[in-house]
Design a binder for these strands. Structure first.
Lengths: 200, 200
DNA sequence: TTCCATTCGGCACCGAGTGCCACTATTATG
DNA sequence: CATAATAGTGGCACTCGGTGCCGAATGGAA
C-alpha cells in the first residue's frame, strides 16, 4: 500500500509523519497568504516538517495541493446521480445534480471561496485543473449515457459532460466576481440561460 | 518592436535568424516523430540552428509551439461572426460559425490532424490549452453578448462561450478517435445532440 | 565611418519533479 | 528478546523548463 492512499489499515512499517489532508491545509494557507507562485515546495515541506522529497510522495505535484480530496466529492456526485428518479427529465437531473454538487454546508464557505479563487485565478492552476475536470466530466457523461441508452464514448454524452462543466465553471467565475450570490443558484441560472439560447 | 511580432517593417537592427512559423514547423515535426515529452527545447533550438536562449524570444514556452498562428484563426472567426445576418437565430449562428471555423482546405488535413492529436493527447499540452481557449471563448461570448444585448461579462454569454468550446472539443476527440468523419459535421452534430438534451 | 536599434546567445540561476539508495520506525514471527 | 519483513523518510544528484543579465554581432541610417 502506498502513502497516497487515505486509510492505512495494514499495520506493518513506519508510521507516516503527516497526511494528504494536513499537507493540503498547510499548503492552502501559504498559497492564500503569499500567492501560489510565491510558495515553493521547499516552503511547504518545511512548514509541514517533512523533507522536500517526501512531499512528492503525498502529492504528485504542487498543483494538486489546493484540490484536497476532490475524489470524495466526485463519489458524492456519482452516487447522487445513481439515485435520481428515472421520471426526472435528463436536463433537470443534470441541472439539479451539478447545482447541489456545489452546495457547501455552513462554515467552510470562506475556505472554499479562497480555494476556488486560487484554482480559477492562478494560470498554472487553471491549466492544471483540466486534468481534474476530466474525471468530473466522465461522471456526467456516464450518467447521461445510461439515460440515453448510448455508449459512454458516444458524442452525445461526452458533449453533455463538457457542457455541464462549462456551465459550472462559468457560474463559478461569476460567483467569484460578485459576492453575495449563491453558487448553486448561479449554476441553476446558467442551465436555464443556456437552454434559452438553445431554444433559439 | 519585439521579435515575437510577425512582420517587421522597420528596418533597423539585426535580421532575425528564423521565424515563429519556421520554429513551429520544426518543433511540430520533432514532436510528431518522437513525442512531445521526448523533445527538449535544446533539441528544437539545435535543429533550428539557434541558441536555447533565443528560442524563448520567439515563443514564451515549449507548449506554445504546436499552436502555430492560432491568433490568425481567431481573427477569422471573429470577422466571420461580424458578418452574420441578424435574422439568423443565435443558435444557428454559433453552430455554423464554430463548425466552419474547423473546416480546413485540402492539403493540410494530415498536419492539422497530427497537431490536434498532439494538443488533445499530451497532458501537458491539454493543460496548457486552457489559456488559448480563453481567447476563443471570449470571441464567442462577445458575439453572444451583442446578440442578446447584454454585457460581455454577464453569465449568459460567458456560459455560451464555455458551451461552444465544450461542444467543439468533444467533437475533436470524436474526430480523432474515429477516422473518416468530417470535423465540421461532427461539430454540427454536437450542437444538435446537445439541443436534443436541452429540450429534455 | 560612426551611431543606433535590434537580435543573438552564453552564463548563471531558480524551481518542479524524478531515480536511487541508505536510513529509520514499526509490527510480525520464531 | 532478537530478527526479519515492511513501509515511510529524505538526502543527493540530475534533468528540464524558464528567466535575468549582459556583452557580442549585425545591418540600416546619419
Amino acid at each position: 500500500m502506498t502513502i497516497a492512499d487515505s486509510s492505512r489499515s495494514s499495520s506493518r512499517g513506519r508510521t507516516p509523519l503527516t497526511s494528504k489532508a494536513t499537507l493540503s491545509r498547510i499548503g492552502l494557507e501559504l498559497f492564500i497568504e503569499r500567492g501560489f507562485d510565491q510558495v515553493t515546495v521547499d516552503d511547504i515541506a518545511e512548514a509541514a516538517g517533512i523533507g522536500r522529497r517526501t512531499f512528492f510522495r503525498y502529492f504528485p505535484s504542487k498543483n494538486d495541493l489546493p484540490w484536497g480530496d476532490f475524489e470524495a466529492l466526485l463519489d458524492q456526485l456519482e452516487s447522487h446521480l445513481d439515485t435520481v428518479d428515472h421520471e426526472v427529465p435528463l436536463f433537470d437531473a443534470l441541472r439539479t445534480a451539478v447545482s447541489e454538487f456545489n452546495r457547501f454546508p455552513g462554515d467552510d464557505h470562506a475556505l472554499h471561496r479562497n480555494r476556488m479563487e486560487l484554482l480559477l485565478t492562478n494560470p498554472t492552476l487553471v491549466a492544471h485543473s483540466t486534468i481534474r475536470y476530466e474525471a468530473w466530466r466522465t461522471v456526467i457523461a456516464e450518467f447521461t449515457a445510461r439515460r440515453l441508452n448510448k455508449p459512454t464514448d458516444h458524442l452525445q454524452p461526452k458533449t453533455i459532460g463538457q457542457i455541464c462543466l462549462g456551465i459550472s465553471v462559468s457560474a463559478h467565475y461569476q460567483w467569484l466576481d460578485q459576492a453575495g450570490q449563491s453558487l448553486p443558484e448561479l449554476i441553476d441560472s446558467g442551465f436555464q440561460l443556456a437552454r434559452d439560447v438553445f431554444l433559439t
